[in-house]
Write a protein that binds this DNA or RNA. Structure first.
Lengths: 345, 345
DNA sequence: TAAAATTAATTAACCGGTTACACATAAATA
DNA sequence: TATTTATGTGTAACCGGTTAATTAATTTTA
């Protein structure tokens, strides 16, 4: 069964004794229609609760008012935040945002792009996934580039392709702030728990971590940089255990996201130590997760609403042919909570 | 600027020297086209990477292959889980799921329904929000009922309206299991931390809590039922503090969701007690949150994939005019983790 | 009051696909 | 070989809106 027979603009026009053009003008609220007809038609529209088909309108106006978004997994608070803000923003601009979860599978990412292309989305917003990988897989790169030639592609992340817009967070700045904060508290042995090293975020943070230690005149200890692989609390737990088993463990640890920070906290607590008394912890993302643990975790904070605003306004500007920045870098701030403490000299 | 001029089926047909009907048949892979033409056309399609417009197809076939979903906020892990599973399932069936975050604002919920109606979604899936309220606001009820007369409305929750399908979780069963588990461990003083009392889930859980205590021959202490208002960790923290200040505090607490359970855990730890040594905790939802705290929290578990499967298959069956159950109740199970402990008699 | 200018409403083409129907051509049967 | 049947392809109508061009109605001006 197809849709139940929907009422159309023809039905309204017939019942009102006017042409479809007139009904269309009334619905679009354009000038040049007499009030009496306006009222008559409106009454019929209300009576049937008629809503003009966006599909027919889309075909006629050759635009869909659809925006596509790709993200690995909305269950991840980071993507949920971005999506939610973007969805709200798109709605305000009378656009609909369609989200697809790709689970960072190249074939799925490409399949979704093709599908969104069929839906005639007017712009594509890519959040993470394969886009974060370095180097970028060739087939993926080609697909995105081909796509970007037809419609504006906005990457919520770093990705320098010719026709793309990139809007990303200044992780280096966040890392610098985290290290500075810990150094100011007197910490000299600071560790960094990171995830996949083949994504640019990890690479940027690592580089920034090294530089920040230099800036603070702190030595770089290779054992304090641990690749926890998994991006979740389990990775954090395992990584932290390794750090704690060192002859001279660090006194503070920076985790590449809040999930890992929570895992690190668990490792510390399980071994009978406490936070912040024995160890200080800083995470990244400042998601609600930081308030679920005891103690709450200090974290590098992003302004998701501002991020979404940039993403959507770039997409809409590009669609409208208005010039807009090819690259936007978003600042971070450090949200200080109970997981850090001054160290006695 | 509208979309860049897209290539159409006419362009393909012209270049291949065939009619659009033939191209359409080839794209749809329907029989009755000679292989040589097939190959010739396909080559041109591939050359331009032509994707037929879903908008034009939708208009012609009078269907959108769109499903609409309403939820309060995807940042909430519960909704993120349902959405993610549904999105994946819909994709498998060649449908696209459009999600709108309503923040449980009646006006927004209604506005989104109207908008989805314009998009000609073939079915609407409502997850929580105003749908959970008891009593149901009249205007909301009317809107949903009107909607349900046109397309299948599937409620992920309890909502008995004439033309709707309702698929909900058996919270009462979950509560019974939680109480039974705690009682078996020897707990006699069990508290229940709940949220908004104007939603059916709270009402169902409360009722089930009372009955379960009876079943276990445990006395019902009014002070052990606390309305924490807010559904988050702060509500849990405040509610638990109140319980801890009682002359005779409970030894176990059931929280209406994991967020509140995490808050309750914080309250306990802050006052210097420990879990599970001094108090046992059980949450609801069994989200990833339960693994972020130390200790991990036992929680009433739902099978989100099964939930999504029911939701989507009901929607698609109803769209297809196939008969399907008006009401489906989903079972729960209890995931036991470290937050509960046997009490010495 | 007639002509000109303005405003209101209609007609019909168009958007880009699908598909019922008509028509040719080829293969099977008489 | 003539006739029937099957197969392949094209024509054109349709889906439900928008809008340019056109015509009709009204108001203004001469």
């Amino acid at each position: 069964m197809a849709l139940k027979k929907e009422i159309t603009i023809y039905d309204i026009a017939r019942e009102a004794g006017v042409s479809t053009a007139t009904v269309s003008r009334i619905l679009a609220n354009s000038a040049g229609v007499k009030q009496d007809k306006r009222d008559r038609v409106q009454a019929i529209v209300d009576k049937y609760n008629f809503k003009p088909s966006a599909i027919a309108r889309g075909l006629s106006e050759t635009h869909s008012r659809l925006l596509g978004m790709l993200c690995p997994d909305v269950r991840n608070a980071y993507y949920a935040n971005i999506f939610m803000e973007c969805e709200r923003m798109a709605y305000d601009k009378n656009y609909t945002l369609v989200l697809n979860n790709t689970f960072t599978q190249e074939s799925l990412e490409i399949a979704f792009m093709e599908k969104l292309s069929e839906q005639r989305v007017e712009s594509l917003i890519i959040c993470g996934g394969i886009a974060d990988w370095r180097p970028l897989p060739a087939r993926y790169r080609d697909t995105v580039e081909r796509f970007a030639k037809r419609i504006p592609v906005v990457v919520a992340g770093k990705m320098e392709l010719d026709d793309c817009y990139q809007i990303f967070i200044d992780h280096a700045e966040g890392m610098r702030a985290a290290v500075r904060h810990l150094a100011t508290l007197g910490h000299k042995r600071i560790a960094f728990l990171h995830g996949y090293s083949f994504i640019y975020q990890t690479q940027d943070k690592l580089e920034a971590f090294r530089r920040a230690l230099e800036e603070q005149n702190l030595p770089l200890c290779k054992e304090y940089i641990v690749d926890a692989g998994e991006f979740n609390e389990h990775g954090g737990l395992v990584g932290m255990k390794r750090l704690l088993s060192l002859a001279e463990p660090p006194t503070a640890v920076i985790a590449t996201n809040d999930l890992m920070a929570a895992g690190a906290l668990q490792a510390i607590l399980r071994l009978g130590y406490s936070v912040p008394e024995d160890f200080s912890i800083v995470g990244f993302d400042d998601s609600f997760i930081t308030d679920l643990t005891e103690p709450h975790i200090s974290s590098v904070h992003y302004d998701y609403a501002a991020y979404a605003e940039k993403l959507i306004s770039t997409a809409l500007s590009a669609i409208a042919g208005r010039p807009c920045a090819r690259t936007v870098v978003l600042p971070t701030s450090l949200t200080v909570k109970e997981s850090c403490r001054k160290i006695d000299a």
